[in-house]
Design a protein around this nucleic acid. Structure first.
Lengths: 165, 165
DNA sequence: TATTGTTATACTCTATAACTATA
DNA sequence: TATAGTTATAGAGTATAACAATA
């Protein structure tokens, strides 16, 4: 039988490389825009955007932010420290659980996001969406969302003690 | 009129985030595998794979490698230096142009790639391809390849002097 | 005991600018 | 003068392990 378990067909290979190339080039372009217009790294943008746009209260626990955005907790402590020093978020002990820290976007943080979004969108339009029709975009989303869900549900196994939680 | 130039519709937004999330998670998983099984970073894998698999001679000029894989030349010099120190590539002045340096994969370099590929493929199967049918994979490739071509053809403008070449 | 978060530390990677050498 | 590559340097980001505090 063919070695269906030890190699990829050429369509899989080119899909893999195209995915990584597109994401890498796009991240590069987007990081430049964020740095120039808001003095933000991509991770900082992710954190701020998540708090400002995805959270009804503008707040989240450190652990939940780390799970959603970043990989190590110390990395998140570092980034949250930078954002706090810049006045874009505040940190305070959680009300219910004294161990937890609740991170909250400040008004200044919301302003930075608002300031940065138009240029960000412009980069996305030029780099990512200009060769895609509306239907293409929908298809792309429909293909990738299940992959993301699968990856989040099935973290890379066989790696030491269970990752967290 | 609607602000079609300053915002994205929700399908575009979720396609963007799904793309970045999938690529980020996948890169993370793949880097771990490459580090464990071949002591390679992702960039080093890209360089080695490009030389070993994509180049008939196993050689390329520094500049062409930098254009294809990495962004800054000094970054490539650094990575090529690491690979050379590990015995995975060799560097020599080009025959035709004394300014150029030709990088060549060594046998040891080819061995590392061969050793690392099966585990790499396994990660891709589990993380990326298991939720995708063959037709899905083809669609994904057909959507992303033109985007990559577009990005490569249209580098992020408005950024100082023309990038290179 | 397990969980939350921080700190200390060490390392990898990347980019900018100055420089050398060849075309 | 322009191009190819290296070097020096400096900064950003990340992760691991040890730690303190709370549940």
């Amino acid at each position: 039988m063919p070695d269906s378990s030890s190699s990829l067909d050429s369509e899989q290979l080119s899909a893999y490389f195209a995915l990584m190339d597109v994401a890498g080039l796009l991240k590069h372009a987007v990081e430049q825009q964020l740095r120039e217009e808001g003095d933000l790294s991509y991770v900082q943008f992710q954190l701020l955007a998540r708090l400002a746009l995805n959270s009804p209260t503008g707040s989240e626990r450190m652990t939940d932010l780390a799970d959603g955005v970043v990989y190590s907790r110390s990395g998140l402590t570092y980034q949250a420290g930078l954002l706090e020093k810049a006045g874009l978020v505040s940190r305070a002990p959680s009300a219910d659980d004294e161990r937890s820290v609740t991170v909250t976007v400040t008004d200044a943080g919301r302003e930075v996001i608002a300031r940065v979004i138009p240029g960000h969108v412009e980069v996305l339009r030029q780099q990512l969406f200009s060769p895609l029709s509306g239907a293409d975009t929908r298809r792309l989303r429909d293909l990738l969302v299940p992959v993301r869900d699968h990856m989040r549900a099935a973290p890379p196994r066989s790696a030491g003690p269970r990752r967290r939680r």
